[in-house]
């Protein structure tokens, strides 16, 4: 509901013709109110332990260190009513020597959040020569908090080599049992001939 009214606000601003003079107030209005409120509640609770990466219409992204990710996820579920993970993606950043895991959380039960996706990102250390499961590329699993991440985390384990501590079932999911190469979605795994 509130996000609808935000959209209207944005529209009226863009309809108002004199664009030349004021730049700063426009920028303030660009931050949608509801999403800003969500981000502020998380910042209020965790302060500098998290970083709000962006606040866009219907999307808020926060970056968390791997030690805090479980606590933040618990807060998102219990206090802010996000009840399931839509998507969990891995992104490989070889230049930072890190692998990022991005949880896109949504809510079915809270009607005010039905448009919202909260993006929770955390990073694991990246190994140059990975031994999936037996190296430092580890993250705490969110499966206890969001049951729906079970298969997603299994996929990230085989595709990026990120081992999820506390996940009950860190087996392969899509790759064949005899896959002996690098985890294939890492940037250093190249498609043959490319």
């Amino acid at each position: 509901m509130s996000s609808d009214s935000d959209n209207e606000q944005i529209e009226t601003v863009s309809d108002a013709e004199p664009v030349s003079a004021k730049v700063t107030p426009e920028k303030e209005i660009e931050l949608p109110k509801f999403e800003k409120g969500l981000a502020d509640r998380i910042v209020e609770k965790f302060g500098t332990r998290i970083k709000v990466a962006f606040v866009k219409p219907d999307r808020v992204r926060i970056n968390v260190g791997k030690d805090d990710v479980k606590e933040v996820a618990g807060f998102l579920r219990d206090v802010l009513n996000f009840d399931h993970a839509e998507s969990v993606s891995g992104v490989d950043y070889p230049q930072d020597k890190e692998i990022e895991v991005v949880y896109h959380l949504g809510s079915y039960t809270d009607p005010s959040l039905s448009r919202q996706i909260l993006v929770l990102a955390t990073r694991a250390q990246r190994e140059e020569n990975p031994i999936p499961g037996n190296d430092a590329t580890k993250l705490p699993s969110l499966r206890e908090i969001f049951y729906s991440v079970e298969f997603h985390e299994r996929e990230i384990f085989e595709m990026f080599g990120v081992y999820f501590q506390g996940h009950p079932d860190n087996r392969r999911l899509l790759l064949p049992e005899d896959w002996a190469d690098l985890p294939p979605l890492r940037k250093d795994f190249a498609i043959k001939g490319r």
Partner: peptide, 26 residues
């Protein structure tokens, strides 16, 4: 859902498809 990460190049840095079938399989 489609999660696209861009790094300013003509190719996407990462494309992730979060598909209904995969989510319902659980």
């Amino acid at each position: 859902g489609c999660y696209i990460v861009s790094d300013g190049k003509p190719e996407p840095y990462r494309v992730k498809l979060s598909v209904g079938s995969f989510r319902n399989l659980i």
